[in-house]
Design a protein around this nucleic acid. Structure first.
Lengths: 132, 132
DNA sequence: TCTTAAATAATAACTATTATTATATAATTA
DNA sequence: TAATTATATAATAATAGTTATTATTTAAGA
């Protein structure tokens, strides 16, 4: 994607970012599209995808993935994720203190670290006990 | 997928697992397919996908994802990953000592943790210095 | 207000993955 | 060892998530 492009602050992009920031369910592009249509009835799914890519490029959102679909996250402060292997939900994990990462050694080996995510996998509290 | 199915130990599945265990590049299904064709010329891509799913289901391999494609990992001992945002390579990170995860609190909240991965994102040593 | 390049809506195209089905084969049984 | 049976295969079609195309619209600067 072009880096030094003069971006226009469009209504569509503002609505998409607002929708994403209003939820913690890490929605798919399609979910965001359905929500956006309630505000801009003739918005296009392509517009949703394009703007999600731009927002990610600008560091305003994160892209996760589910295995088969991309999911998006309006939170960009350091936090982690739990992926339920039963219902496929993704939860935010806020207990920063549970994880201690020291990556000086990696940097010495030449890795430039921009970010990191910890993704737990298992059964979520809702599914726990009533699995199919 | 059926759980109590009587599995047959096919030549195709053995070859696929062998190929995956022989590399550390976390290949895509298509890469594995090309390699497998050198051993079984008329193997089908569908067979590769089906067996990768079975092997994952049996806990013999891991599935990572790259954003748009699945990547597979023949290593199942605890280790972490580094994803280069420049060349898209995924590297294994072995320094277990750099990461300390304590998830008792999560378990108390009802999360059943089966596994976790730490994914660093940034520029790899090879790309460091000669980015495009 | 005029100009211009970026963004949009609509839609087509692409691609990774999964499903379908007739045939082949591993493994069990006789 | 031969017959049986259900699983796996190869070939191919179908699906679905995402990206590309293009004529038109629009945000933002002059």
């Amino acid at each position: 994607m072009e880096k030094n492009i003069k971006r226009r602050n469009t209504h569509q992009r503002k609505v998409i970012l607002e929708i994403l920031r209003s939820t913690d369910i890490h929605p798919t592009a399609d979910w965001i599209y359905e929500r956006a249509r309630q505000v801009i009835p003739n918005i296009s799914l392509g517009t949703v995808y394009r703007n999600l890519k731009i927002l990610k490029d600008e560091g305003l959102i994160l892209e996760l993935n589910d295995g088969k679909q991309s999911r998006f996250d309006g939170r960009i402060d350091q936090h982690f994720h739990f992926k339920c292997i039963n219902c496929n939900s993704i939860y935010d994990i806020d207990n920063k203190q549970i994880i201690n990462v020291e990556y000086n050694d990696l940097q010495k080996e030449g890795y430039q670290i921009r970010s990191f995510d910890v993704i737990f996998s298992g059964i979520c509290p809702k599914c726990n006990g009533n699995q199919n």
